[in-house]
Structure formats: C-alpha cells, structure tokens
Design a protein around this nucleic acid. Structure first.
Lengths: 342, 342
DNA sequence: ATGAAAGCGCTAACAC
DNA sequence: GTGTTAGCGCTTTCAT
C-alpha cells in the first residue's frame, strides 16, 4: 500500500507537493508535476480515503438505509440514489436492515461514527424515529425519503410523495371503468406505512357512494406471497368483487396469481391495480396497471436535500420537499367489469 | 460529533483509558469504568470509524462489486454476503458498476484506497481481469465469486460454481422428459460468462445424439426483454421446438411471456427451464423449473476466502474453492412433449 | 490502574 | 513553486 510520502520520495519532492498536484491545488511547476505524476503511476499509488476523510472531517460516503434489499423496489431506488451521489463525488453505502431493529441500530451507529457523511432513510415507519432525531441532534445529516404524507410532515428533513393521491387515482380509475364492488389488499398493517394510500383509496370509494365493509380489505406484508394469500382470502369472502386495489406492485403480482389459481381471468373477471410501477410491472402478464410514483425524482431530491442539510445547522427547521404527483399508468390488468354491478 | 478526548474530559480521565474500557483492553478500575461508561452515554459518543481504520491500517468494510443491482439475483446474493460479513464484524459496501468500466475502475480505485479492506467481485467476465490482478499485487485482497468454470481457474482467488454441470442437468432433464427438438436462449454472448453453462447443455444434447443447428440457439443479454425477444426469434425460425434451455431465470421469464404471446401453453406446448433459482422463479406462473445454484453457500465461502486472503501474502498461489453442485428443481414449466418428436 | 506520547496517511496554512 | 508544520481522532506501547 503505497503512501503519499513514498510517492514524494520517488519523485524527489515532499508529500505536500504530491498532494497539491493530485488535487490541483496550489502552484506546482510543470516539470515537477510530470515527475510526480510519473511517480504516482510507477508506484500505483491510491490516496487513502480514510486518512483523507479524517483530516477533512468527513468521509466521501453517503449511506442509504433500506428495510429489505430483496424487495425489487429498493434496488431500483438505490440505483438512482447512487447515480445522484456519484455525480456529486460520493460513494453510496447501501445498508440493508432486513426489518431488524438491531441491524438498523448498528448501521445508524456506524453512520454516526462517520462511516458516512450523511444518511438517507427509507420507510421511516419501520425505523425508530426518535433514534433518527437523536442522530440528527448529534449533528449527523439525516433525510427521510418517500415520506408518504406531505400533510403530516415528520420532525425531520424529508422528501415526500403524495401517496394519498396515489390511492385516489387508483380508486378513480376503477370507478370510472364502472366497477362498483371493489376490494383492497394493503401490504402493511392498518397503521403501517401504506395507511395513507389506502386512505386515499377508501375516501374516494366513499365519496363515490360505493358500498363498503371491512370484509373488502385485507392487511398483510409487502410480498408476492402475502398478496396472493390476501387475494385468496378476500375473494373467498366476497366472490363478487370485480376490482382490486393493491397498495404495492409486488403483492399485486401475487393477486394476479391468485386470480389465475381461482380460474378468474384478468382483466375480464377481475381488474387489478397496484402502486409504484416497479420495472417488473410492465413485464408481468398481464402487464400491471398501476399508479407510478416518481422514484428517480425522489432519489435525486433526497440526495440534494442531504447535501443542503449537510451545510445547514442541526437547529434549522427540517425542510420538506414534495415530488411531482403520482401518475396513473393503465396497462392490461384493468378493464371494464364484465357484468354490471348490482 | 463527540470525540474520545471529550468523553475523557467528562469522565475526568485520559483518552487512552476511555479507549481501553471501550475495547476491553488493558486494566481499568471498576469505578473508573463506570464513570467512563456514563460519560459515553451522556455524550452520545460513537467512535470515529475512519480514525480507527487509519490507525489500525484497515477499515471495517468489505466491498462487493456487482454489475447490475437491478438484476434481482444480485440483491439476493448481496444479502447473503452481508449476512456473512456482519457476522464477522464488517460492513458491506455494495458497489454497482452498471456494466460500466469507468464506474468499475472508480470503485476498484476506491477499494485500493482503503475504502474497504477487501473486495468480492462477481461476474469477473465483465471486469478487466488484469485490473484485478494489479489490485491484488498492490496488496488488496480480491476474490472472485461465482467463477463459472472450476476446470479453468483464473489467476485469482475464487469461489467456483460448476455451471457447466448446470447446463448438463438442464439438458438431461429435458431429454429424459422425451424432448428431441430443443432450443437454447443464452443470456450472454458466445464467449461471455454464460458460455460454460451453454457448453454443458450442448455437449449433453450432442451426447444424446439429438439433431442441432445454430438456428436453435440465440444469444442476448440477461434481461426479461432479451429473453422474450430471443424466444420470439427462435420460435419463428424453428416452430417445432418443444423444449427451451434458458441460461438464466430472468430471461426465462421473458421466454414464458413470449410463449404466451405466441399462443403456446407452457408446459403443454413448450417446456422451459432456467438456471439459478432466484426467488421469483417459484413465484412465476407457471412456476419455473430451473437448475438451482448454491447462492448462499457461495456467498459464505466468498467471505471466508476473503478473510483468509487478507491474512495470506499476495504472492501465495490463488486459492480456489468449489461449491456443492447445482441441483435440478422441477416445477411447472417443464413436462413431457405433447406430440412425440419426428 | 492510569497517563503521556507517538504515529497511522493525509491536507491546509504558512513560511521560505 | 516547494517545503515545513500542525493536526484530524484514534490505538498502542511504555512510563509512572
């Protein structure tokens, strides 16, 4: 592991000079620069990022905390965050907590210990918010991303997406198509992070004067299997449902499968709409209708916000920014109901 | 950002003592320890990992380089690597190169600059091997994971999986089922990293005395869309194919879709088998038959090997370890051909 | 049992 | 233009 001093010795100069040519600071003679560059090349020198981070008081790393990298949404999102981070000269540390508070604590501590200069936290609902607030008060830049309810900002900097509106759009779509017997598969508990998108959906259903009972909704987790199970339960309890709102794309895939298993054809016998528009959504058969959420935009905004939080004092009021609104994407899993509702 | 010195001052001791109690080294009076712990608690102190890495000469981070985090296989794999790394007290830096040599270089340089203590590289075929060898010679621990051909080890430490055998198993399965007109969708170029699994397949086909022409194989990329396109091309050229080998699960999903689009029913009209057994494979409809590869095992072995490489001199001959063999997993996408082959 | 001191590799003032 | 110096926050001998 070559060090600055060694390069300096080879070039016959001092460490400071090498540092200067490498970072383009200060004045260096053209001929000296050549010798230094040659020495760097010859020794295969790479600056020690730890040492640099130490003296500069901050590492060249940003952290992203996600609950489950196995859920395809997060990699897609991480990709965007990384892209934005790299543009700014940062590396991205993707921290997967597996929904485990202990792991989450460990990562947060590490970030607090300057493993990264700042941290973007997804799914703040799973995270101990007070822990995050403590972190912020200790001076660690924290931003929440994909906060689901702009109207109820948390006490932390955040990038907000109007998921309530996503629920509204989904419901409106189904209703406009002529569906009157709707159901919902929610991939969190009633107080979990999908509550707002469900609220948007249900409010719209009520506003349309459609009948609704609790038998028409099922709560579960954000997985294909849970989506499938929920759909089976729902369809067993209410066989006459013609349209299903699913609070995320992944469980929507499971719903699609459940329908097939029950001999129902989508969208002829059942319309299904998800939320998010992950890449797989358009690759499913039938291609999934969904409410697209501005993932890339949120990622970019989160990095921008992190940058500004890094520069502002911890006492400043937590900023919030809202992405552009969700967008309805109609594909092949939704259509007019076959038999008109009663 | 509290420092050791500050904690020491609060506790009325010196930094060395605080360090000692925190790391359980040296002798510390029981009562002093209490005061120190209290001070740590009061100040919310977190050790600066950069400073620690600097003095210890190595960071507490391992890096994993993958070509595309958007491909669901990598997150699954990364999860396992992280699990293994954390058990050993390391953080995992997931570096996504997007198949871009420039990004790859950047990450490799960063690792060379002690961003991480060692690096696990996937898909070595996409990576400039000479770059990796140079890295290793500069003393950076490198291990290749998922090397696809144990019989032809690279000149670097590696964890090998017998993908040739995976191709063999897939072919045998199809042939035993009675298929005689087979096709192959390969998700890399003919000299790419899927060449060996394809070789295993084709060797087995030949050994069985089955007819074969180049029209029966199509090369592409490791995506659903490419799988779909390849299948369309293949099936247009050879409409009488009854069994398709696909070199990876993701493109196999695309093949499933192409079949549906062509009005073919799987497995009645066409059998499809993939390789890897990613989680989505059993969640697809029809559930995908595939040759499972020991992902978690490979991940664990890679971390173990990295640990041993860290301790051994760079001049040592590169070790290689082979995982347990791939395993046939029969699900719903393969069956006996409907009409017997000519 | 605790403290003092050196130094990890680097950068940034400032001096020459 | 280039060198000297002083740390960044931590761990680790070595004194005391």
């Amino acid at each position: 592991m070559t060090t600055l001093a060694e390069v300096a010795q080879v070039a016959g100069v001092t460490a400071a000079t090498v540092s200067n040519v490498l970072r383009g600071r200060g004045k260096v003679g053209a001929e000296t620069r050549q010798r230094v560059l040659a020495a760097v090349e010859a020794t295969g020198y790479r600056p020690n990022l730890m040492a640099r981070a130490l003296v500069e008081g901050k590492p060249s790393t940003l952290a992203l905390i996600v609950s489950s990298i196995a859920n395809p949404f997060y990699p897609e999102f991480a990709l965007e965050v990384e892209r934005a981070a790299r543009r700014l000269g940062y590396f991205l540390l993707v921290c997967n907590t597996n929904d485990d508070p202990a792991q989450e604590r460990a990562y947060l501590d590490a970030v607090g210990g300057s493993l990264a200069q700042g941290v973007i936290v997804m799914n703040a609902d799973f995270v101990q918010t007070d822990q995050l607030i403590a972190l912020r008060q200790r001076g660690v830049p924290v931003v929440l991303c994909m906060w689901e309810r702009p109207q109820e900002p948390p006490n932390l900097p955040c990038v907000s997406v109007d998921f309530y509106q996503a629920g509204v759009l989904a419901a409106e779509h189904l209703i406009k198509l002529g569906h009157r017997r709707l159901g919902a598969v929610v991939a969190s508990d009633p107080t979990g992070n999908h509550r707002w998108r469900y609220q948007g959906f249900i409010d719209t259903v009520h506003r349309a004067g459609l009948p609704w009972t609790d038998a028409q909704v099922n709560f579960g987790h954000d997985t294909i299997d849970d989506g499938r199970n929920s759909a089976h339960g729902l369809l067993a309890a209410c066989p006459d449902l013609t349209g299903l709102f699913v609070s995320n794309d992944l469980p929507a895939f499971g719903v699609l499968q459940a329908a097939a298993e029950l001999g129902m054809e989508v969208p002829r016998d059942l319309s299904v709409i998800g939320v998010t528009d992950i890449q797989l959504a358009h690759q499913m058969r039938p291609a999934l209708s969904t409410v697209a959420v501005p993932t890339a935009e949120a990622a970019g905004l989160a990095v921008d916000m992190l940058m500004s939080v890094i520069q502002s004092p911890p006492s400043a009021p937590p900023p919030m920014v809202i992405t552009s609104p969700p967008r309805l994407v109609v594909r092949a899993s939704t259509a007019k109901p076959r038999r008109t509702a009663s």
